[in-house]
Amino acid sequence: MLLTSAIITGLGLGAMYGLLALGFHITYVVSNTVNFSQGSSMMLGAVLGYTFAVTLGWPMPFAVILALALCGVFGLAVERFLVRPFADRGSNAWLMATIAGGIVLDNVVLFTFGKEPRSFPSPLATDAINVMGVGAYPLQLIIPVVGIVAAAIFSFVLRNTKYGKAMLAVVQNAEAARLMGIDTRFVIAGAFALSTMLAGVAGLLIAPLFNVSAGMGLVFGIKAFAAAILGGITSAWGVVIAGLLYDLVEALTTAFLGSTYTQIVAFSMIIAALFFMPNGLLGSAGIKKV
């Protein structure tokens, strides 16, 4: 039972880390940059969803779609104002800029949404069901499914639609993509929008299990980044698997060693993994040239 419950916990949250990490992966492969406000994007999804569905009482599907759309708009803004101005001159200052953007967003939400955490009710997280002798909310079982389905949809869209292929083309050879008439800037902006929308999905999924507050994204963002690095940020499946793995390690450590050791074990695993696999589990390094 200890094992089953740890696995359910680990898979549920791990899939959420996987979604966030997938967002890190997408922007990294198309533009070699990372949106360090990914945790804040996740918070934005949850806060907007709460505002639309609970505060304003709009129908849930509408609230979810609008929240995700606005997350996408946030992603476009991040790319346009926090990444592009620096990446264009070959500077790494986007790193600090996206962190600053996250701080600003967190605080703007703090002063508009309010300082108190709120509960996001969901029919999927009210009545527990029995899974192999362990109680779980349906949502907990849905999250890994959504995570894997999202990764699969992402992978399908990438390979089977015109825009997906354009994005793939930019990843594989940006210059050749431009010669095909593909506007790489458009694709990069799209990648950021997609990445923040995935974060928004993660936020909406986790909100009913947790709560909604302005500061909720920070820790999740950091752990998801850890998962992205662990999996090898250049590999889509790598980061999703690492997301699951990361939280499984956390949950199993908690269950068998005790919660005292959880954080230390998880973060030590990152350092050790990078020491032995500098490109992560499934990541790859480029060929160096002069």
Partner: peptide, 8 residues
């Protein structure tokens, strides 16, 4: 988010 492991 989930303290089931501890409670278990």
């Amino acid at each position: 988010i989930d303290v089931v492991p501890q409670l278990t």
